[in-house]
Design a protein around this nucleic acid. Structure first.
Length: 633
RNA sequence: GGGCCCGUGGCCUAGAAUGGACAUGGCACCAGCCUCCGGAGCUGGGGGUCGCGGGUUCGAAUCCCGCCGGGCCCGCCA
């Protein structure tokens, strides 16, 4: 309730003036001016009105200002018309300081109720359980995890799902390796997901090249997995959960957490597809094609165009994309829940991760699914399929619910990094796509380890005599912060060309810069000898006078607006950039003004309060991004 | 062939929905700043046909059309 108050006041003033002038609805914008001299917020309403009145914007602006200037509330210091037509408002800094600090020191700071208790499920990660995560998967994990954190913060009931495709070809390949090629199920000391991905999956695919007949075995394995009987199922029961646990280790390392694992085999064996399919038929949403090239297939009737998506082949089997429909419908509670549930693992954050089971569940489970909104985090190559799935949920009676695809472009390897991995990069190409099957990818654990190694050097250098355990833990957190920030700060529509040397940077606009700044602020708080923020009064707020103090305070006051925007747009980018701006302003302040050593007692107290407010706010933002805050670095 | 995404100094990048003031930061580069709460920092500087060409508009990085370059999707594969 800070900069937001100022913004609301500005809007109120403009709307009141418009009413006075007797004009109807005008679509105008309130934005931050490009140059601080122009004030703190600018309104472009005069441009819109100038069209209507046939008068120059500057004149309209003056007219509006003359109506407004007499009735400014306390939070608004001044208003002025710029000759170009903008109406510029300046905030009353003392008032904003007081409001901002008061809000920051309150319990539940930043929490708001946009969600109104509505339930949202966020599905992310969903990596085939036959290999270790590469950095492309990491983008998925951290995007989904941060969105979940943001939505929870703004009042949604959030449930995080991880879909395990344990009946697909990728898992089947690994099982073929164990069952028909004789690769041992138990590796040496290597992490199990990596073993299955690097030593089994790749190998099996190489053997397919020489011996294509072996692919018949894959078909056989998949059939067994879907039906739930046969030797392949026995192998899968031993192998897949071990891979999933190994993958989860990496996800947890990245700071992610989940509520439930949904296994594809359960969806299939419990007949959820048949239920969904019957429902689609009942609602006349699918039809059987009688003739032509699709004769004998069941297709989804597309809305407008003549596109038809095959769901059931003429031999009666379902296509890959069709399997997503019952799952989506379950998420939104459009089908009866066929699952039983049991506990799968304890997570680092202290919560329990549950899993679906086919029978003998724990009756004492929390409610799952049946959300008002479903968000599926999956890369843009799945956009088309996701459209069909969203459309199918509407046909199944989910018209009042929302199914959203949160897409993002892939992470590719830079030419330099690819060549360092020994891959051939054709001339002229600047990047190469990652592929688990070909083994051309960068493993997430490897990236984190490399980052950590760099961080250990730095931390040890700056903290002589620190315990190895502390150095290790701190370096780990730096590594996670660095990687997460990098993956969250840019537009999801843009491909990330991953370069190892670039990724190892710890300076500039990076996670470690934020952590470093947080530690700086923490040290001041520690040295102040206080354990809670000083009482702030309007009188004390008045002692903030230096430009760097005011700028920092204003940046802090914008937190709620940024959070609101992030939640509404399901985007982490703005939050990431905001966190950097916050830290940047703090460092400018820190450079020029002393806190502990400030001789004037009143100024010292208010500055300390400012540091507290900054630290609390940055902590909030870092937690939303999943960048671990560090007291000491 | 149809559809979607991207193109902003040498490299990376912000400019959302709803066009508006001198185009945002970072990396790299140059010049400064530690007797002072932590220099992973701070201050200043150079560097731009916002891919190209039209159009709409008083005004376009932003909207429209057409190109160019890069990527992705479009299967009774998964």
């Amino acid at each position: 309730m800070t900069f937001k108050v100022f913004r609301a006041s500005v809007k109120g003033l403009i709307d009141e003036a418009l009413r006075d002038m007797g004009v109807g609805v005008v679509n105008y914008q309130i934005e931050e001016p490009p140059i601080p001299n122009f004030g703190d917020l600018a309104v472009n309403v005069a441009f819109q009105l100038s069209k209507r009145f046939k008068e120059p914007p500057g004149k309209v602006a003056e007219d509006l200002v003359s109506r407004i200037s007499g009735r400014l509330p306390r939070i608004v210091a001044s208003v002025s018309a710029h000759p170009t037509g903008y109406i510029n408002f300046t905030v009353e800094a003392d008032e904003l300081t007081y409001l901002t600090m008061k809000a920051a020191f309150e319990e539940g700071y930043g929490s708001m109720d946009i969600g109104r208790g509505r339930k949202v499920v966020v599905e992310h990660t969903s990596v085939n359980p036959n290999k270790a995560l590469h950095v492309g998967h990491a983008r998925n994990v951290v995007l989904g995890d941060s969105i979940a954190r943001i939505l929870r913060k703004v009042g949604y009931r959030v449930e995080v799902l991880n879909y395990i495709d344990d009946t697909g070809t990728q898992v089947a390949d690994v099982i073929v390796g164990f069952l028909h090629i004789g690769i041992p199920e138990e590796p040496g000391p290597v992490k199990y997901d990596r073993y299955c991905g690097d030593d089994v999956y790749i190998k099996v695919n190489e053997i397919y090249e020489e011996n294509p007949k072996l692919e018949d075995k894959r078909r056989e394995v998949i059939t067994q997995l879907e039906k739930g009987i046969g030797p392949a199922v026995e192998v899968a029961k031993r192998v897949v959960p071990k891979v999933v646990k190994a993958q989860l280790e990496t996800c947890w390392r990245l700071g992610a957490r989940y509520d439930l694992l949904n296994w594809e085999s359960h969806i299939i064996r419990l007949g959820l597809w048949d239920v969904a399919f019957n429902e689609l038929r009942k609602r006349n949403a699918v039809k059987r094609v009688d003739e032509g090239r699709l004769a004998g297939c069941w297709v989804l009737k597309a809305s407008g165009k003549d596109e038809e998506k095959v769901l059931v082949r003429s031999d009666g089997t379902t296509v890959y994309a069709a399997k997503d429909i019952p799952y989506a419908a379950w998420k939104l509670g459009l089908l009866p829940d066929p699952f039983k549930y049991s506990m799968f693992a304890d997570q680092p954050d202290g919560t329990v991760l549950w899993t679906t089971v086919e029978r003998d569940g724990n009756p004492d489970h929390p409610p799952f699914g049946s959300a008002d909104m479903a968000i599926t985090v999956i890369d843009v190559r799945q956009s088309r399929v996701q459209e069909y799935v969203a459309y199918a949920t509407k046909l199944l009676g989910g018209g009042h619910k929302e199914y959203k695809h949160l897409g993002y472009d892939v992470v590719a390897l830079s030419r330099v990094s690819a060549e360092k991995l020994g891959l051939h990069v054709p001339p002229g190409r600047q990047f190469v796509h990652m592929s688990g099957r070909r083994g051309s990818y960068v493993n997430v654990d490897d990236v984190l380890d490399a980052l950590k190694e760099r961080a250990v050097e730095e931390v040890a250098k700056r903290n002589p005599g620190a315990s190895p355990g502390w150095i290790d833990l701190t370096a780990e957190r730096i590594a996670v912060g660095a990687l997460r920030y990098q993956l969250l700060r840019q537009d999801p529509n843009k491909m990330i060309i991953f370069d190892m040397d670039e990724a190892l940077k710890l300076e500039g606009e990076t996670g470690p810069y934020l952590q470093y700044t947080y530690a700086r602020a923490s040290r001041i708080v520690e040295k102040s000898g206080t354990s809670s923020p000083p009482q702030i009064t309007k009188e004390k707020a008045r002692t903030l006078r230096e430009p760097e103090e005011i700028d920092l305070m204003k940046e802090i006051s914008k937190y709620e607006l940024e959070l609101e925007l992030a939640a509404r747009t399901l985007s982490t980018k703005g939050m990431a950039i905001y966190s950097y701006r916050l830290a940047d302003h703090f460092n400018s302040f820190y450079e020029r003004h002393r806190v502990i050593q400030e001789p004037r007692e009143d100024v010292r107290g208010t500055r300390l309060a400012l540091v507290y407010a900054f630290r609390i706010t940055l902590r909030e933002v870092l937690e939303l991004l999943g960048v671990p805050p560090l007291e000491k670095i």
